[in-house]
Write a protein that binds this DNA or RNA. Structure first.
Length: 529
DNA sequence: CGAACAGGCGCC
DNA sequence: AAAGGGCGCCTGTTCG
């Protein structure tokens, strides 16, 4: 059974509508006394809940209610709109309803972005339950004809929404005291009145000294002028370019840039803004990246520097289970292309490939595969690619077909059917066409990896719920998951991750020899190997 | 004055 | 040695 759910406005009442699998109403709409009634329904009937958007589930979580299965109409609409070749068209509930009635949809309302999500809530229109039911029914019709891949993708995307909201609610354990200690070690004591911390100030002074005049190291233009005066004409101030310059300012400047980045992006201001009560609670945007990867809002959640990861520590008596998929994208390529010899087992793929084809040079093997998937042609990649083309013709043909499709302005799709954005006016120009070819080449692999990860999350969440496990998913980053678990169930949680990874591979590709191993480690701190 | 853009770099 | 896919977010700079 399915149940459409409308939380109603803040001070209003929640409403539900029982539906058949195809989305047709199975009864009259009902008004609930309170949100607790949702919990009772979940306990006794465990329906698939049809939500208009993530915020509907956020309202439930705020009341301590979680559910097992969902259909997120906004996310599914985005998948269907893209599949129809209209990527980027409005896909919120209002837009979907308008499209259903043959009207031109208005742009989606802007995402609310004014602080941590738990602290605000934008009231939905008074009664959108009827719209939700109509849109959902239309989506079920579309999914019925779209095929099993799209149906799995719609379910996984919706499960991703559940995971994302629950992760935000749970928060990533974050020790402010450890973070502060790391900052003091790297930057010196926190400056009381703002300004540069001692070590940054010292490095800036060293840069001034090396140039013989004040130079703002934060201003690329000033730095370029200073080097030019010293006889070094640079195109940029990127660190790799600076490293090739023989000048006494280079060393302090590079050190400054590294520490300044930490200070500005993950310094004391970040800590104050984003960590409350021992938790970092970013908001995850499911499907926020064209490839289906998640984006995040607030705190740069998907760019936590390695240098700060020691601040992520389990609560006393708890552990972190840190699991990341090994060489996920080349394994996806092996599965997608049917070139299974590319990924023969569980062992490190690059090392194995290097032993067979690249004289044991793992770096070469990695560069070759990265180049194949990203479309790199320069910097010595060409000779490596020739080796790949000879040994793995099907895999290379797969990415090259995808690149050609992009160059010709055609759409490409992931394994389950996520569709890339359409070509834009101007993309037929040679340089733009090549760029689009690189994009579509990468899209097929990255988007399929993203949906594998999505199915993994859904499987893992399902396993943990079925087992009544107290372990919680607390972080997800493309091919890596973190769980927070009581020490006594940490090993079982790691085992659940392995099982979920295997299940995700089967859900996508059936019984093939390619493996998608996840290395799971049980640690107290995220920095521990 | 704020908005928009560019340069740069963190992560995958 | 230094280029190719996807992001978010900081600072500096320019523009209106």
């Amino acid at each position: 059974m399915r149940v459409a759910f409308d939380p109603g406005p803040r001070d209003g009442v929640p409403r539900i509508w029982r539906l058949d699998e195809d989305g047709a109403p199975a009864a009259a709409p009902e008004t609930l006394a309170d949100l607790a009634a949702v919990a009772a329904l979940e306990k006794h009937e465990a329906p698939r809940w049809v939500f208009a958007r993530a915020r509907s589930y956020r309202r439930l979580l705020a009341s301590g209610i979680d559910v097992g299965r969902a259909h997120d109409a906004e996310l599914v609409e985005g998948l269907l709109v893209a599949a129809a070749g209209h990527f980027g068209q409005p896909h919120g509930l209002a837009a979907a309803g308008a499209r259903l009635q043959g009207r031109t949809p208005d742009p989606d309302p802007p995402a609310v972005d004014d602080g941590p999500p738990a602290l605000f809530d934008t009231a939905a229109p008074a009664d959108e339950l009827a719209d939700l039911v109509a849109v959902h029914a239309a989506q079920q019709r579309a999914l019925a004809t779209a095929g099993p891949g799209m149906r799995l993708l719609a379910a996984a995307e919706s499960a991703g929404m559940l995971v994302a909201e629950e992760m935000t609610a749970a928060g990533l354990p974050w020790r402010a005291d450890v973070h502060d200690r790391l900052l003091v070690e790297l930057l010196g004591p926190r400056p009381v009145l703002g300004g540069r911390p001692p070590k940054l100030a010292a490095l800036a002074e060293a840069v001034d000294g090396a140039f013989g005049r004040p130079v703002n190291p934060d201003s690329p233009a000033e730095v370029l002028r200073a080097f030019a005066r010293a006889g070094h004409e640079l195109a940029t101030t990127r660190s790799w370019e600076l490293k090739q310059v023989d000048h006494p300012a280079v060393a302090p400047l590079l050190a400054y840039k590294e520490l300044a980045r930490l200070h500005s992006a993950h310094g004391w201001a970040w800590l104050r803004s984003w960590v409350r009560d021992g938790r970092f609670r970013p908001e995850y945007v499911v499907g926020g990246v064209v490839s289906g990867r998640w984006a995040s809002r607030g705190g740069g959640a998907l760019q936590i520097p390695k240098a700060m990861r020691a601040a992520v520590r389990a609560d006393p008596g708890w552990r972190l289970v840190v699991a990341d998929a090994a060489q996920l994208e080349p394994r996806m390529l092996a599965a997608l292309s049917g070139d299974h010899a590319l990924a023969p087992g569980d062992e490190d793929l690059y090392t194995a490939l290097a032993a067979r084809e690249f004289g044991g040079d793992r770096g070469k093997a990695k560069l070759a595969l990265i180049s194949a998937m990203y479309g790199q042609t320069t910097g010595g990649a060409a000779v490596l690619l020739a080796t790949l083309r000879r040994r793995f013709p099907a895999a290379m043909a797969f990415v090259e077909d995808a690149a050609r499709a992009g160059e010709q302005g055609r759409l490409v799709r992931s394994h389950l059917g996520r569709t890339c954005p359409s070509a834009r006016p101007g993309d037929e120009q040679p340089a733009a066409a090549r760029a689009r070819g690189r994009f579509t080449r990468n899209f097929v692999v990255q988007a399929t990896a993203a949906e594998w990860a999505l199915v993994l999350l859904a499987e893992l969440r399902g396993q943990l719920r079925a087992a009544g496990s107290p372990a919680r998913l607390v972080f997800f980053q493309h091919d890596e998951v973190l769980l927070h678990a009581p020490a006594e169930v940490a090993d079982a949680t790691a085992a659940a991750v392995h099982a979920a990874a295997a299940a995700a591979g089967r859900r996508l590709f059936g019984d093939i020899p390619v493996r998608f191993p996840m290395q799971a480690r049980v640690v107290e701190g995220y920095d521990e190997r």
